[in-house]
Design a protein around this nucleic acid. Structure first.
Length: 276
DNA sequence: AAGGGTGTTGAAAG
DNA sequence: GCTTTCAACACCCT
């Protein structure tokens, strides 16, 4: 469940459930999720650590501990649950953190794309993968000038440029579709073809769409209704994503679906005209 | 009923 | 360099 609003919702939920808890044991049953070090070393380093803070950057979740920060990326299907330590493991559970109070944090990931990495506190943003990242949409530096500098020379479609975390972090396929609809920009418009007003709209709607989605607890699509995970309600407010054939909420023209950069892309052919 | 698509991203190829 | 394609994995839908 991993675009910025979902990760932020998970961060807030986990903050209430696991801050202050002391890790007594970590069990890893899918090695590839743990980056750089062995699962055994990962488990050994975490034993005895207490979770002090929950933070987020883009789609990355940070568990700030005493001597390490655990950086977790959920990719496509990663999910966290808090359960009694004695509760049975789910079919797709790959990591279990047992706490001293008898509760536990479980990581489930059907597709095993997610990653976990331990770094020293304060070095989170300097690690590989996070060092070249763009700004958060809510950063005051995320301005027309900033975005222009990043993408105005590019011949890639704006859809791909907004998905590229080196330009701006946090947007994924759902919210890029929504932001481009609100901004009235055709997803295949190249960076080089964007007009001044397009940039202003992009800045405005990146912020408002994500802010609204966070308010609604993110978007839940294709999720288990276990009641233990985190689910949001923004799926009821999506305007174009997964709405192929449905009337545009603005002009009633049928929403179209095309592929851009290999990703499903939804837009209104009337409201979002291609600009040369 | 096999094949394409899926809330992602990094590595490889062009 | 910059841009596009594909693989990692498991399931769903057609």
């Amino acid at each position: 469940m991993p675009e910025l609003p979902e990760v932020e919702t998970i961060r807030r939920t986990l903050a209430e459930q696991v801050i202050g808890k002391n890790i007594v044991k970590v069990e890893v049953t899918c090695d590839r999720i743990i980056q750089r070090i062995s699962p055994a070393e990962f488990a050994a380093k975490l034993a005895g650590q207490t979770i002090r803070k929950m933070e987020r950057f883009g789609k990355y979740l940070f568990f700030v501990l005493d001597e390490f920060t655990l950086i977790s990326h959920l990719r496509m299907e990663g999910k966290y649950y808090v359960l009694p330590a004695l509760a049975p493991a789910g079919k797709y559970e790959h990591v279990k953190f047992s706490f001293s109070d008898g509760s536990s944090l479980r990581y489930e990931d059907m597709r095993k794309f997610g990653t976990m990495e331990l770094v020293l506190p304060g070095t989170e943003r300097t690690t590989k993968g996070l060092c070249a990242m763009g700004l958060e949409p809510f950063d005051e530096g995320f301005t027309v000038a900033y975005l222009k500098e990043k993408i105005q020379k590019s011949h890639s479609p704006i859809k791909s440029l907004l998905l590229d975390q080196k330009n701006v972090v946090g947007l994924g396929n759902i919210y890029v579709n929504e932001v481009l609809f609100q901004s009235r920009i055709h997803p295949e418009t190249t960076g080089s073809a964007l007009k001044e007003t397009d940039y202003a709209h992009l800045i405005e709607y990146c912020r408002s769409v994500l802010k609204d989605a966070i308010e609604f607890g993110g978007t839940t699509i294709r999720s288990y209704y276990s009641g233990l995970g985190v689910s949001g309600n923004f799926q009821d407010r999506l305007l174009v994503h997964r709405k192929k054939g449905e009337p545009c909420p603005r002009c009633k023209t049928a929403i179209e679906k095309i592929a851009v950069g290999g990703r499903g892309t939804y837009f209104c052919p009337k409201c979002q005209k291609k600009e040369a």
